[in-house]
Structure formats: C-alpha cells, structure tokens
Design a protein around this nucleic acid. Sequence first.
RNA 1: CGGGGUGUAGCGCAGUUGGUAGCGCGCCACGUUCGGGACGUGGAGGCCCCGGGUUCGAGUCCCGGCACCCCGACCA
Length: 573
Amino acid sequence: MRVSKLFGKTLRDDPADAEVASHRLMLKAGMIHQAAAGIYSYLPLAWRSLRKIEQIIREEMDVAGGQEVRLSALQPRELWDASGRTEILGPQLFQLEDRRDRPLVLAPTHEELLLTMVKANVHSYRDLPMILYQIQTKFRDEPRPRAGLMRVREFDMKDAYSFDIDEDGLDVAYQAMVRAYRKIYARCGLDAIMVEADSGAIGGKDSHEFVLLADSGEDTVLLCEACGYAANAERAAFTKPPLPEEEPLPLEEVHTPGVTTIDGLAEFLGISAAKTFKAVFYMADGEFVFVAIRGDLDVNEVKLRNALAASELRLATPAEVESAGIVAGSASPVGLSGVRTVVDDSVHLGSNFVVGANRHDYHLRNANYPRDFKADMVADIALAEDGYICPSCDSRLKARRGIEVGHVFKLGTRYSEPFGAYFPDADGNDRPIIMGCYGIGVGRMLAAAIEQHHDDKGIKFPAPIAPYHASLVALNVADPEVVACAEDVYARLGEAGIEVLYDDRSETAGVKFNDADLLGLPLRIVVSARNLAQDAVEVKGRSESVAAAVPKADIVDRVREMLSGSYPQEAER
RNA sequence: CGGGGUGUAGCGCAGUUGGUAGCGCGCCACGUUCGGGACGUGGAGGCCCCGGGUUCGAGUCCCGGCACCCCGACCA
C-alpha cells in the first residue's frame, strides 16, 4: 500500500479528547474515527489489524474444536423477555421497533438465540460435546463509554459456547479454551495473565479473566509473586490478620462525643481500627441490609451481592438508614432486630470489639459474637487490598490495574435449564446440557496491545497484529534513483508476501520518520541517496535505535529474517 | 444518574468593556529545499453546538436544550 493513496491522515497535534495512550495514538495515526460516545468506525489501518486479531482467534478456536457460526444481531425482544434479561439488562439493552411496531433488540450477547438453535439441533447425547463460536458485533448501551476502544457501545467480540453432557466434559472444554486463550494472547504478542474472577450476573461456578496489566485498565487484580495466586479484586480472597484471643469481658457503654467514624473512634479510644466493628447499610433488591465488618477492612460489594444472591445492590440512602431505625455514626448490630444482618467472617478473628451503641455519641466496648449480637449470615465479604496477606501462602498481595481482554465461565445449567435445552442420555433420561462460555473483546485487544506496546513516539505493533509488516520510506522522491530503488524494493517485498506500507509521499524526512514511528510497524526500511551510494538500503526495528545497512540484493531475506526473529512463536507455525 | 470540564476552520487553540472572527498546524498553487514534524510568495476554507431572549447590534450577556471528555455510581 502506498501512503499517498492510503485512506486516513495522521495528525500532528495530539487530539484533545483522548487521554489514554491507545485512544490518542489510534486517533493520531488515523486508524479510527468516532461517530458518538463509545461508537467508532475503523479506517483501513485499524481494520487490517483487527482482522488479523480475529484471524488468530479464529484459528485457535478451530484448533480447539470450535465451529464458527454467525447469529443475527437484530433479535425479537420476546426472546429476551422470555429469559428475563430485558429487565436484568435494563437500559443497557438497545431496543427498537420495526415498521409494524414489533419490538426488537440489538443483541448485547447471544445466549438466548444460540440456545434456541441448539435446542433445534441437538437431539441426543450423541450430538455432544460441541463448541460453537462467533466473532461479531455486539451492542450494549454502557452507562459510561470511555478510553477510546477500551469500553464502547458497539464492539466486536468473539464468544464461544461449549455444550457437554456432564461436568467432566465441561472441565475438558474449559481447559481447551484456556489453552487456546493462552495461545491467542501469545500469538498476538500480548502478555496476559489469567486470574480468578467473579462470574457476575452471568452466573456459574469457575470463572477466570485474562488481564493485561496496565495503569489505564479498569480492573484491579491482586497478585502474589511468591505463589502465583492471582485474582480480580471482586473475587480475591486474603488471610485476615487475627487478633490475640482475649477473655470476653462484659459489655460496657462508653461516651464518645462527636465520634462518628472508625478512624475517629480508634483515635479517641486509643485502639487500632481492627478492634472495632463498623456498620454499612445496603439496599439489596429493595430490602434493607445491615452489614458489619471489622474496622480495618472494607466491604467488597460483589462478594456481598453474591452472598445475598441479590441482583441489585446499592448503598442505602441516609433516609433509608434513618427509617430503618439506625443511628448513623453509632450504628450497632447489638440489640438490632427486624433487620437483615450480614457479618463478615472477621468477626471470628478477635474479641471484645468496640461497636456502636445505636445512640448518638455512645459506643459499646467488649462486644462478642455470638454472645452480644446475631447475624442472619456470616460470610467473607471483605475487599482485598494491596499489601494484604495472600490466601494461599504468607506473602503480601500486590494490587495492580489491568485490562480485561478475555473471560471464561463455567455456566453449568444456568441457561440450559431455563431455556429447556435438554438431551436424552444413553438411558433415555432427559438431562440439561452443561455449558461454558468464553469471550474475547477484539477491539479491546487492539487497544490493550497498544497500551502495552508504545513509547512517546507512537505505537510499537507486535508483528502478528501490525496492519503491515514494514514501513518503506523513500527519502526525497524528487531523486529518480531513490524512487526507482524504492519501487524495486516495494515490488520484491510484495512478491515475497511481505506486507509493506510504502511512504511515497513528497514529504521531508522528518515527517516520514515521525509518521513511521507513530504507526509503529515492526520494521522500517529506508531508501535514500546516502544508502544508495553503497548499494544498500537500511532496516531498523521499531524498538531499535540504530539502523542496519543491508545490501539491496539481500533485503527480502533480511526482512523475512527480522520479522520471524522477533516473534518466534510465529516462526514455528 | 451525581460531580467537574469543554463546544469557534480538517486538527490544536485565542477572541478584551457586546461592534459583524483570528493564530498555529494541515490543505491548494508556484518556486527553493531534501536523513528527524524545512522556507518563501500567493490562495481557499466558518450554522462561532442548537433554540429562545435582551440589545440598534450577541462568538461574547440571560434562559433552556444537546453533544463530547474526565472522576464516581454502574458495567453479561
């Protein structure tokens, strides 16, 4: 491709509305165009890269035994009404009507439709196991699109679904998908780590996320360098430091004027926050819930939601707290009745806690569970944070930000049962299909790759997903010899199957070099009068600082060598 | 949905007490240059986000919308 003909122009100034690197660089390099918040079009450069990512995913899905399907994006809303997800998804679901006022939705995911197809086509245990996948556009009206391609409302996603007769089969499929995912990221030149994840509202048991560590990421993950434990913060467990066991002392009221916070309370009484118990109030599916946790810990709302099996969870408003008869600032589980109470299991790790007295300016010393208060539920609802103790060894966890680029779930019968996806087993008994689902965001992969591979000059594309393999820069196109050589090199590389972006524009060296660095193809080949004097052209890797002079005749071999050398996993294939 | 910010040329921005819009980059033409965002000369390019209002007169003041960005809430 000649740059003079390429659709898409680079920008000299940084676009004002882009803060994260991938967004800024893709706009600046002329790769993407924004239509509205979280809605982007892809220009040729981005689209080439995305297609390469898709192709890598497709190949690995096929190796893992997947069959590609293509499902309709426009779907009747009644399908979603039937699964109850019209309501669950709420405003996130794009809805429209056809000319006869029939309600339709733009599919945010495809479980519903796929299940109806599976029901129609799976008639026996002999049809299983099976893996289906699709790579196509999904629509979600996100509350807050952000960071360029990182979180958008229209996006391409690979979704795979496994269908098995039993849990053992699911385990096999799950492991095959995990292996495929690891290969996909490796082939794309991405350093993704697998972390334990919450399965969220999609349900199911085991769940893992694939995460690229990056400060611009939306997720927080906790990692243990010593034993390899890795989990999303929503899911992460940790060892809660125990307090010395004390003889239970009698409950005793203490005057605490003006004290309404845990820090204030600890300071006032000269004790550590861990010796206190704090109260937090939530509304879970409309029901008021009193939550208590040791003063040094914070509530993990995802764990709490799971413990309560609630679909909607939010902090209670001050008015709701008051109408529940709670004295905010001195709230206490002691003497509480008629309110659902959840207590973190840290209640077992200590004694003689200081709690509120349900009376302004008073707290209670020496509260002990279960002597002084009851709970409807005791569970781990604590949020893991940086520096906490690893749950599987005694090292410290590190908190890092990351970009979620893949998520795998063991769904079990979560969808097959309600959708009636049953099959007769060898004994003729109907059994629900055991399912797994496995997603990768294609556009987010591209954004994440750029987050992970860039410098102050621009992108540094991993070769397998670069829009082209090399930039060919002709310096001074007014010089006929330079042009002749560049054309010759362009033609020969093209014949050798190497994808070259040929900068044939009448621009100065600085402009061309800067644009080449900005787009960040793996190699840069320069043809100039200076090199031509030695019958050479020069080749430089995007990350290298000095270029190598290569005899003109050797250029094809040399480029091939350098491309395979930088990505051995590609060369092996 | 709450908080903050921004809407003026393709991009980045300025615009004074209200007086009919400018700079840089980019773009077009010609010439000189030619290894890290060159230079000269000449040009083109505007629904000042939208709608009301005040005023002789509004990019500017007032009211009401909308859009986009950031933080938070939310996020199969």
